[in-house]
Nucleic acid binder design. Structure first.
Length: 475
RNA sequence: GGCCCCGUCGUCUAGCGGUUAGGAUCCAUGGUUUUCAUCCAUGUUACAGGAGUUCAAUUCUCCUCGGGGUCACCA
């Protein structure tokens, strides 16, 4: 059987995309978005979405960071295809291509010392010229200076036009003399550099659609130089505009709340975060809510915006509230266990969650709301007491307590509501006269779901207890 | 500074020569509610500026301004 070169994907219909983070920290919200776009595009086309860990910078990389990225992917349900590729394990591959380029005369050893390089740059800067390597060893065939370990530089075109065909921004033309020089592909210690290995890996892994941040746009011509030197096919590029912070700068780790897993802790659901991110820089008419199935069906990188967007989480809150509202209660019970609330055996959890899930923006909030009801108040909000105990609510509360004590068959909120109505009618008062003090007695503050719901959830005995406590504490 | 990209409500966006410039979010107001929230209704707010091209420009071209990205033996 003839061996098919891995990098030859011409004629192949399979879309292969990738996400290639360098493991220097957690998964970032911006990285997640490009990962999501890549994932969606691969899934839509029945292709592959592969993960490559760019861990060549031994000083800054950590296994921990790799695990953090994987964990975030797992939480979000983004699944990569096949084995994960680690660049750190591919040195022999890169060495082979460096040698090939050297043998073919497409790359050469440069014996310029770091000091000389710095000096050159400073001179160029002083003359207001573009700083670039001057090619002094490009055609060198003399005796190399002693004591200098050479770097390997690639012979880049000295002139001409390089066109990046970008699916988001259109064709972008660069002049070789403006942006290229013979850049380093291997350091003095022999290790390969980023623009070199990215091109090789993408080609070897069969990646034919590269979706990445547009901060890579200016790297692309360099990578194209590598593709061409090695005879690889150039993939389609989609350079996604940056996400900016409120100051209009590229979102960075310093901006806070950019760690994807922090969103879990804050109580966001994966589908809300994904939905939020897919709409940042991409849209499909007026549609705001997208299930994963819809995203896969409708996403196309051609529809990605050209302009950067500012990161603001207003809409994320709205989406999260929407998804919480539409989550079945049994699922919520499970989710809440991550936020310190165990409702598994609570007999009124359906009533409770039906009432609360309409009100929560995050799962964390939902957990707090549950606790506020399930756990008796330890203190009473001063303002609420002042307002609710303004008249003399104690006779009313006592009247209600008496009815409660005698009542049987109390199950639903409506059962408790009926008792409240009886008191209101008999004492000829407004609903607020009993509602407000009762609310303060039960929760220690104003706000919250309907009182009858609260009582149904905590039950008759607990209700009586809280009423009694409130009377003692506030009379 | 060189090179490259971008510019519609505060924010996310629709628009692809002719629209009262649409939706969403946020905010405000009203309704519903014993409270708060939800929900419903209503409202305020945008084509960066200037020249062209055209019968007609938010839409096409150029310039200006503004913003961003990138210029390593980091990735």
């Amino acid at each position: 059987m003839p061996k098919i070169p891995q990098h030859n994907f011409k004629g192949s219909l399979m879309v292969v995309t990738r996400f290639a983070p360098s493991p220097t920290g957690y998964l970032h919200i911006g990285g997640l978005r490009t990962a999501l776009f890549s994932y969606l595009w691969a899934r839509k086309n029945g292709g592959k979405f592969v993960l490559r860990i760019e861990d060549t910078d031994k000083a800054r990389n950590s296994e921990e960071a790799t695990q953090a990225i994987l964990k975030a992917f797992e939480w979000l349900g983004l699944e990569a295809d096949g084995e994960i590729t680690y660049q750190s394990k591919r040195d022999d591959i890169y060495a082979k291509y460096i040698k090939q380029l050297l043998d073919e005369g497409k790359a050469y050893k440069c014996y310029m010392s770091k000091e000389e390089l710095t000096e050159l740059r400073e001179t160029q800067m002083a003359n207001k010229e573009r700083t670039k390597y001057d090619g002094r060893y490009r055609d060198f065939d003399g005796t190399p200076p002693e004591g200098v370990e050479p770097v390997i530089r690639i012979k880049a075109p000295l002139s001409g036009e390089i066109i990046v065909k970008d699916g988001v921004k259109g064709d972008i033309s660069f002049q070789a003399e403006d942006i290229l020089d013979d850049f380093v592909i291997a350091r003095a210690d022999g290790s390969p550099t980023y623009n070199f290995v990215v091109a090789i890996d993408d080609a070897l892994m069969g990646i034919n659609e590269v979706i990445r941040g547009d901060d890579h746009l200016s790297n692309t011509p360099k990578q194209i130089v590598v593709y061409e030197a090695l005879g690889f096919d150039i993939p389609a590029f989609y350079h996604v505009p940056m996400i900016h912070n409120s100051k209009g700068k590229k979102l960075s780790k310093r901006d806070g709340a950019t760690d994807v897993m922090a969103y879990k802790e804050m109580g966001y659901k994966p589908e809300a975060l994904l939905n939020f991110l897919v709409r940042l820089g991409w849209s499909h008419g007026d549609q705001e809510i997208f299930s994963m199935e819809e995203m896969i069906e409708l996403f196309n990188p051609k529809d990605i915006n050209k302009s950067a967007s500012i990161y603001s989480t207003d809409k994320l809150d709205w989406l999260n509230a929407h998804y919480i509202k539409n989550t079945p209660n049994n699922e919520l019970v499970e989710l809440l266990s991550d936020y310190g609330v165990v409702l598994t055996s609570h007999d009124k959890k359906e009533i409770l969650l039906d009432a609360l899930k309409e009100r929560a923006k995050t799962l964390k909030e939902l957990a707090e709301m549950v606790n506020e009801i399930v756990i008796a108040p330890e203190s009473y909000d001063e303002k609420a007491v002042k307002k609710a105990f303004k008249g003399d609510p104690i006779p009313i509360l006592n009247a209600f307590g008496a009815k409660l004590t005698n009542a049987t068959e109390l199950h639903l909120p409506s059962d408790y509501h009926a008792l409240m109505e009886e008191v209101v009618n008999e004492m000829e008062i407004g609903f607020g006269k009993i509602g407000m003090p009762l609310r303060v007695a039960l929760l220690g503050k104003m706000g919250g779901p309907n009182i009858d719901v609260i009582m149904a959830v905590i039950g008759k005995e607990e209700t009586l207890l809280r009423i009694a406590n409130a009377i003692t504490a506030n009379s």
